[in-house]
Design a protein around this nucleic acid. Structure first.
Lengths: 351, 351
DNA sequence: TTGAAAGCGCTAACAT
DNA sequence: ATGTTAGCGCTTTCAA
């Protein structure tokens, strides 16, 4: 079974291939009755345009590459989903590349996608500094939008959550519920999510307590780190732990429970991202919800603009405001009864 | 900055385009010193083959489409990751389509990928019956491998976990630790994961207890359902709850804890998949680990075979054995002390 | 408004 | 072993 081509449709409709192309592409006006004949013939033969041939001729594949650090990071699947939907809604397709959190792999994947003639790239850079060269080089060839994380300044368009204001929301909220001895459990990575959230904590925490900006423990974005970090922050005798993402917060909550520390009674805990998994923990986690759908939509729209001739418009950097989602884990502390309540259940150990 | 083409490399190397193509593609023998000249020229000019042109001529794009129900289902990201790595290792690229658990969207995505001339398709079907037509039609056009889930018999090649033997492992294990009053919390969906696991439970549970095959509650693959189901299975007075996947098991464990029921002391709980998230729950979850990497590798290899001329070899159906991962949630019951221990902590309610 | 014809960049016959 | 040439299926001048 061989493919139906334009030529065959043209023959069936009794006109030239150019006319068929015009009817189907809507490029130029075509006489109404011949247009009908063409559409009918195409329909009848089950004609489907060969996108590869179209791409070669028109220099546009209709595919967008998405390069991300690790699809197994629980924040990314929902972002990928929204990006996929936004692109398919415009008739584009998504080439996905996972670079295993490795800048060298990232560079290789970017090259591979460029070789495939993607119309544009969406990149969630692995590392603020080490991703930079590959991103800059790619941005010189096709429109490139950095998504969710930056990569030096002025490298390319950027669509990301406003991490600073998200962290500010958290700190304001903690102050409002009467918590002052805050500390931070973050990630030491060089990606902008880690960097910006830490910086925002350092900048804002001093308003609650002059010592707070110094009460910082850095690891990675995992709940294993959150567990380990819980032990390390207890000597600070904090009344709140601000975490750089939800996974860390979940780990902290788990470990606090094991240690018999009452959360939120004694220590409040906050996360960042609002990944689906937070539905699992008890107490429910107060966190910062990233506007995932809006990020995807904005990125798709920005790309579409660049692809429609706005290639030389000034670089855009779009920061979307996240939303604080207040749940139980940051409820006002039970100042007096906390210690006592916690001690009714003895600490358990890991098995 | 315009792209470097074969023609320019040929001119720089002082030979014909055909020769350059042969050198770079390794298609035919070429004289050693002219080969060197060509490689040098290509290198110097920074030549990158245009994959679209190559695809049009050679009728092979080097891209594989992956169509899956929902990337946000926590089992899929690791599978996608392995598939991506396996394909990129062979120089292929991955077009990802997410069909939102909807068969109509699935059909549309499959068509979109075929229009893009994917060399082959990997499909994780949404629904055993409703996905069938689209899959069959696509399989007539390109090699198609069903991944992780089937879709009627004889439709296409299949690479999936052996759900039946996974469930059998669970039941044997529960019998070995002395649990007999088992029940099942499953999913009522029409995908093969739900169907096969349920069937295997029904087939095997009778060996533990004649009533067990009838003790079944069906919902969906979510932890919300697991929570709700926990209340529904308590009247069975079970000593073990077999769950169709990890999310359900996590929900069941959570609700049991809320109700003050001791797990595993009183009721053992098992899951299926071994998603990363199981690292979060306490007690640690006994589950069935799907051989994710091997599934991806097998699927990639099967595709590669089909693409290298084995298109008409007999259909293959490959079932990979999963592995039982025994953790705390199915430890032998504490027959006597269970009720008492549990009642020291009063039931909490959802907030 | 329509058709004829020229490619897009590459590979694969077919020559030599 | 190398060069010449004819397309792959489509879009887009350029003429009519």
């Amino acid at each position: 079974m061989t493919e139906v081509t334009l030529k065959e449709v043209a023959r069936a409709a009794g006109c030239s291939v150019a006319t068929v192309s015009r009817v189907l592409g809507g490029t130029r006006p075509v006489g109404p009755e011949i247009a009908l004949r063409v559409k009918e013939a195409a329909e009848r033969l089950g004609y489907r345009p060969n996108q590869v041939a179209r791409a070669l001729r028109s220099r546009s594949t209709g595919t967008i590459g998405l390069v991300l650090p690790q699809i197994t990071n629980p924040f990314f699947p929902s972002l990928v989903r929204e990006v996929e939907h936004a692109l398919h809604a415009e008739g584009r397709a998504l080439l996905l590349a996972d670079c295993d959190d490795d800048p060298a792999t990232e560079a290789a994947r970017i090259t591979a996608l460029l070789d495939r003639q993607v119309d544009a790239l969406l990149v969630i850079p692995v590392d603020e500094t080490h991703s930079r060269d590959a991103v800059t080089a790619a941005a010189a060839r096709v429109p490139l939008v950095l998504l969710d994380r930056g990569c030096g300044t002025g490298t390319a368009d950027l669509v990301a959550t406003d991490n600073a204001s998200g962290m500010a929301l958290v700190l304001e909220h903690l102050a409002a519920v009467g918590r002052r001895r805050v500390c931070y459990v973050g990630a030491g990575g060089r990606d902008t999510a880690a960097v910006e959230r830490l910086a925002a904590y350092r900048a804002g925490a001093g308003a609650l307590d002059p010592e707070a900006p110094g009460r910082v423990e850095l690891g990675d974005f995992s709940w294993e780190w959150g567990r380990a970090a819980a032990d390390r922050i207890l000597p600070f005798r904090p009344d709140a732990v601000v975490c750089a993402n939800d996974l860390i917060a979940i780990g902290v909550l788990q470990r606090l429970r094991q240690l018999g520390v009452d959360a939120p009674g004694e220590i409040g805990v906050t996360g960042f991202d609002d990944v689906p998994m937070v539905g699992l923990v008890d107490p429910a986690l107060t966190t910062v919800r990233q506007p995932v759908r809006e990020l995807a939509a904005e990125a798709a729209q920005l790309l579409a603009g660049r692809l429609n001739g706005q290639r030389d418009a000034p670089r855009r950097s779009v920061r979307l405001a996240p939303e604080l989602v207040v749940r139980a884990s940051s409820a006002p502390p039970r100042a007096a009864s906390a210690r006592q309540a916690a001690s009714t259940r003895p600490p358990e150990e890991d098995q």
